[in-house]
Design a protein around this nucleic acid. Structure first.
Length: 428
RNA sequence: GGAGGGAUGGCAGAGUGGUCUAUUGCGGCGGUCUUGAAAACCGUUGGCCGUGAGGCCCGCAGGUUCGAAUCCUGCUCCCUCCGCCA
């Protein structure tokens, strides 16, 4: 959520910033509602003050033997006027809220306008492995190696699902453990949240109302509007940890990480090039998250990207880091870096981590503040999130980048203990 | 799932239609005293809206009334007991 004061005072500037995302927004109507809202508040406040004093006087006058019927009659109409104004106010505020809830975040100053074609590679690690044979794709590899069972995954969950088995399950689990250990060492607190969340969580994160079609909603009980949903990322849980709280400044930054599967509809997003485990309805991810003071968030973002990169380096994978253009950043995010791993068969880099600074956008939606000791004032925190990492995109990269001519795969050193072997060989 | 009880400030806990401005205690913060600390004493102590005067907030939403923490209705959550259960 943007600060409506900013729009009130600087509508053109806000519109220009949103235009970097390719969004054309007209604030004229909003500003009319905003004006009406404030006028309503002014009048209601005035009338309530009058009612309050008169109502306090009535018992005194009665005691003094005076007739209060006229005053009571007058207050009755005042009460009705207040009620009418409050009705109007609620109407206007609902419109303002609906409008504001649909607006995406302002891109940070240094984020360039335009779509993903304007993303900029800021650095790369390693180089694409050179094969003196025709490399197989990960679907062939993991199937031959017996790591992933696509057919039975579909039998269980339908299209868009798979299951890990044997060494594949061990490797996926080993990746998760490797990340857990690294995050603990970096001072992040481990959270295992519920996977089923209430609607307010999606609102705070910024998924609702705009992106409600992207998540799986649970059928509520008959006659009840339960409005639970399966989280599309652990970020949705972690941003809500401190919803409606006022944090202590000396406890910031708060650093958390969580492992959850991520459940996404991915409706209509299937592409032939994304077979296998590149895109599914459920995938594993460890997410890191920080709550910081506003002045600390820019540095925190760099720190989180560097941390995500160190995980990749620990696996010996070739990757690059891109800084996203405005329109490619998530709606809640002011600035985003993607860490993208090389998938040889696709000859493409695919996102395995997305590290973002939401500034105060999510904090405002969730009323997450901290008390600044120097001023005694409450301020909104900044929130940041980064995948650390999306394991389900990593396993394809590991087998493709680590494959050898005979179809075997070298297990990254960091995972050998978990998998129990150095080389994975085709089964049968 | 059944039965009962409850929701008031950081916590505990009064208040059942209008004298207060929602008692009081604890905790927190500041001070006095002290070599330092404790104790004692004094002061202070939330959120939201509004340029401001001021207004709103006693779980949430409605209603009754000149006036609601208090009365009425609906909802949510929590606790206790029973049942079921990984």
């Amino acid at each position: 959520m943007l600060d409506i004061k900013l729009i009130r005072e600087n509508a053109d500037e806000v519109a220009r910033a949103l235009a970097k995302r390719g969004e054309t927004v007209d604030f004229a109507e909003l500003l009319v509602w905003d004006k009406e809202r404030r006028e309503c508040i002014g009048r209601v406040t005035e009338l309530r003050a009058r009612r309050k004093t008169v109502s306090a006087d009535i018992p005194k006058l009665k005691k003094a033997g005076k007739d209060t019927a006229a005053l009571q009659a007058e207050m009755k109409t005042v009460g009705e006027t207040i009620k009418n104004l409050e009705g109007r106010l609620a109407e206007v505020e609902a419109r303002i809220d609906a409008f504001m809830a649909m607006l995406p975040n302002l891109p940070a100053e240094d984020v360039v306008p335009g779509g993903k074609e304007h993303n900029a590679v800021v650095r790369t690690f390693g180089a694409p492995p050179a094969f003196d044979f025709e490399p197989r794709n990960h679907v062939d590899l993991v199937t031959r190696l017996g790591l992933v069972d696509y057919e039975r995954g579909v039998k269980l969950g339908g299209n868009g699902f798979w299951l890990y088995r044997d060494d594949g399950a061990r490797m996926e689990w080993g990746l998760l453990n490797y990340f857990v250990e690294r995050h603990l060492a970096a001072g992040y607190e481990f959270i295992l949240p519920p996977h089923i969340l209430i609607h307010q969580c999606g609102y705070t994160a910024g998924q609702f109302p705009k992106f409600k079609d992207d998540v799986f909603h649970l059928q509520g009980e008959e006659g009840k509007d339960a409005r639970h949903f399966l989280l599309p990322t652990a970020e949705t849980a972690l941003i809500n940890l401190h919803r409606d709280e006022i944090l202590k400044e000396d406890r910031l930054p708060l650093k958390y990480f969580a492992y959850t599967p991520c459940y996404r509809k991915e409706a209509g997003s299937y592409r032939a090039g994304e077979r296998g485990m590149i895109r599914g309805h459920q995938f594993n991810k460890v997410e890191i998250f920080q709550y910081t003071r506003p002045e600390d968030s820019a540095a925190a973002l760099e720190e989180m990207v560097a941390h995500a990169e160190s995980l990749m380096q620990g696996l010996g994978l070739h990757y690059r880091v891109s800084k996203l253009a405005a329109a490619d950043c998530g709606a809640s995010m002011a600035k985003t870096y993607d860490v993208e791993v090389w998938i040889p068969s696709m000859k493409e880099y695919k996102e395995v981590s997305s590290a973002s600074n939401a500034h105060d956008f999510q904090a405002r939606r969730g009323a997450i503040r901290f008390r600044r000791a120097a001023t005694g004032q409450n301020e909104l925190v900044h929130t940041l999130n980064a995948s650390g990492l999306a394991t389900s995109r990593l396993l394809p990269a590991i087998v493709e980048q680590g494959q050898r001519k005979d179809g075997s795969v070298v297990v990254p050193e960091a995972l050998r203990a978990a998998v129990g072997k150095e080389i994975l060989r085709p089964v049968q």
